[in-house]
């Protein structure tokens, strides 16, 4: 493969992954321009350290890892500058999972999951997962992603986003229950639906 072949190959790779990187960065930063800048930096950094890509992980996974580190740095740098709206009106959806006595509503009760834990190995599972995540209100999705995918402790999420501990716990609770329901419909309960 010639040098220019390699380059155009790389360009194609970059272009196919860019929208997903951008969506992820936007979710975390809300600042459109800055998200684009960060993705650009990510691609540049990837290009400059191509020899470090050993090919043991997927190319896209590797790009996401670089972006993730940049996002963590950026979020830490901007600590207290980002103000996260606490959207109380969206609580309604979790409210619908429980009746007036705070018991599970019959249609919302957790069902047995048919897919095994090894689901995380399936690329398709994460597509469903990301779709579910993007359906959450932005603030909720951001808090959840910071906690579970970027590895922040709740205390640091509070400081970064200017939220109280109680806000963060409420948002995580809501995110987890909604994701659980969404994944049950979109992935873990699939066979049941087909029967």
């Amino acid at each position: 493969m010639t040098k220019s072949d390699q380059l155009s190959d790389l360009e194609q790779h970059f272009e196919s992954v860019r929208p997903r990187l951008l969506a992820f960065a936007r979710l975390q930063l809300q600042d459109f321009v800055q998200a684009e800048d960060l993705v650009q930096e990510t691609l540049l950094a990837a290009f400059q350290s191509l020899e470090q890509f050993k090919g043991q992980s997927k190319f896209e996974t590797w790009l996401f890892a670089i972006l993730k580190h940049k996002l963590v740095d950026e979020i830490r740098r901007r600590s207290r500058q980002i103000v996260c709206e606490y959207d109380a009106d969206k609580i309604v959806e979790v409210d619908q999972m429980f009746d007036e006595r705070a018991h599970w509503v019959s249609g919302q009760q957790p069902k047995a999951w048919v897919q095994p834990e090894s689901s995380y190995l399936h690329e398709q599972f994460w597509q469903v997962f990301d779709l579910c995540l993007f359906h959450l209100p932005t603030g909720t999705a951001r808090v959840y992603t910071m906690r579970e995918l970027l590895g922040f402790e709740t205390q640091e999420i509070c400081t970064s986003l200017g939220l109280t501990q109680q806000n963060v716990w409420t948002m995580l609770h809501r995110a987890r229950l909604k994701l659980r329901g969404c994944l049950e419909r979109g992935w873990f309960g699939q066979d049941e639906v087909n029967l």
Partner: peptide
């Protein structure tokens, strides 16, 4: 049993998210 199931599912979701985060490192 419903909440017990819910607990196991949420724990599993956290585990697989962490696994995903680790493989991306």
């Amino acid at each position: 049993p419903k909440c017990n199931r819910c607990a196991k599912q949420l724990q599993m979701l956290q585990r697989i998210c962490h696994q995903r985060a680790q493989t991306e490192d």
